[in-house]
Simulated assay, not measured.
Amino acid sequence: MKKWLRTLTMTAAVAVTLAACGAGEEAPATDEEAAPGGGAVEATDFTVGMVTDVGGIDDKSFNQSSWEGLSLFGSEFGLEEGTDYRYLQSGDMAEFEPNLRTLVREDVDLVWGIGFLMEDAIRTIAQQVEDAQLAIVDSVVADEDGVPLANVANITFKEHEGSFLVGVAAGLQTTGNKVGFIGGVEGSLIKKFENGFKAGVKAVNPDAEVIVQYAESFNNPDRGSQIANTMYSQGADIIYHAAGDTGNGLFTEAINRARNGENVWAIGVDRDQHEEGVFGDDGQSVTLTSMVKRVDRAVYLVSERTMNGDFPGGEVLEFGLDDEAVGIAPSQDNMSEEALQAVQDYQAQIQGGDISVPQTDEEYEEYLSSL
C-alpha cells in the first residue's frame, strides 16, 4: 500500500513525547513555559534555520510562534543564535526558494519552511539536494505519485478541532446572532479553520449567521481592517481570523470600535492574542479568546528529534487536541462560564470520537444535515 493511503499519524517518538506532557509538565513552546530537561545542556554542533512566510518574524502569529519554538530549542541546548540557529525573513513568495537554498548551501542540518505556501520551493530543493534535511509546516511535500519525499518532514495540525472550540465560544457569546470569519489565502488549509469554526458556532447556536471573507493575503493588515469594518457594520459582533499579519487589522478595527463604546470581539489564532486586543489603561482587551496552534511545540520537538539523529524524513506528523497542540488560549477572562464549560464538554466529545469536525465545505454540509 502506498504511503499516501496510510493514516497520517504522529510517529511513536513524537507521540510519546507529547503524551508525557501533562499538567505541570507541558512541552516547551514559549519563554514563559518550562522546557524538557529543566535548563540548557551542553552545546552541540547541530545547526538549524528557518525561513519565514511573508508575514514576517514579528507577525504576532504563525511566524512568531515558530521562531519562539526554535529560539527556546536553541537556548535550551546551548546553541548560539545567529550561528547555530537563525531565521531568514521573506518579503514575498519569490524569496522563499532563494532563502531556503541559502541555508541548504551553508549545510545547515535542518532547514524549516514555515507555511504551506513554501511547498513548491521545498519540493524543488528537496529533489535537487537529496542529502538536505528539510521540514515544512502545514503541508505535505510529495512526489508525482503522492508519496512524501524522503528528505522532508511534514508537520500538520488539526486546526479544525481548535477552531470548532472557538466557534462554540462565539456561538454562545454573540448577542446579535451574527459572527464573522476572515481568512488569509483561500485553500484547503484555511478552509479547515473556516469549517471547524462554522461547525462550532452552529453546534450551540443553529440560528447564528456566519459571514466569511478571504483577504487573499497573509500580509495586509489594512485589508484585514477593511474586512472587519464591513463585517462589524453588517452586524457581526465577534470575528475570528486565520490570516496571519492580515489578521492584525482585525484587532485594530475592533479596538477602534470598542473605544467608541461598541460591544465587539475578536478571536485570535495560532498563539494567545489577548495582548493584541488590549486598549485603555485598565488592560481591557477586545480578544474574546484565541485558537492556539502549537507550531512552537512542533518546531521544538522535531528539531530535537533531528538533533538526536532521528530526522523524520518522509513522515507526516499530525498534532491535534489529544496532543495539546491546538485548543483554547489560556487567556479566558472574557469568556462566560457557560462558554468555558461548553468548550470543555465539546472537546471531550471530539476526543471521544462522538463528533467528527468538518474540514472541507462538503464535510461541513454533511455536518449541518446531521444537527
Score class of each variant (00 low, 15 high):
135 A>M: 11
210 V>A: 10
61 S>E: 08
253 E>K: 14
105 R>E: 14
37 G>R: 08
49 G>Y: 10
343 V>C: 07
54 V>K: 00
361 D>S: 08
121 A>F: 08
122 I>E: 06
53 D>P: 10
143 D>N: 15
304 E>I: 00
78 G>S: 10
318 E>Y: 04
7 T>N: 12
267 I>K: 02
59 D>R: 03
370 S>K: 03
245 D>C: 00
275 E>L: 04
149 L>Q: 02
72 L>M: 11
333 D>G: 10
249 G>Y: 06
245 D>F: 15
307 M>K: 12
227 I>F: 13
82 G>D: 08
39 G>I: 01
225 S>Q: 15
199 A>P: 12
48 V>Y: 11
197 F>E: 06
347 Q>D: 09
62 F>R: 00
190 I>T: 15
266 A>L: 08
133 Q>V: 01
183 G>W: 12
363 E>F: 01
176 G>R: 11
242 A>T: 11
108 V>H: 06
342 A>L: 01
61 S>L: 06
213 Q>M: 09
17 T>M: 05
52 T>G: 09
236 A>L: 05
8 L>I: 00
253 E>N: 13
318 E>R: 15
338 E>I: 11
248 N>D: 10
208 A>Y: 11
312 P>Y: 06
298 A>L: 12
122 I>V: 15
169 A>R: 05
11 T>A: 09
271 R>T: 15
224 G>E: 08
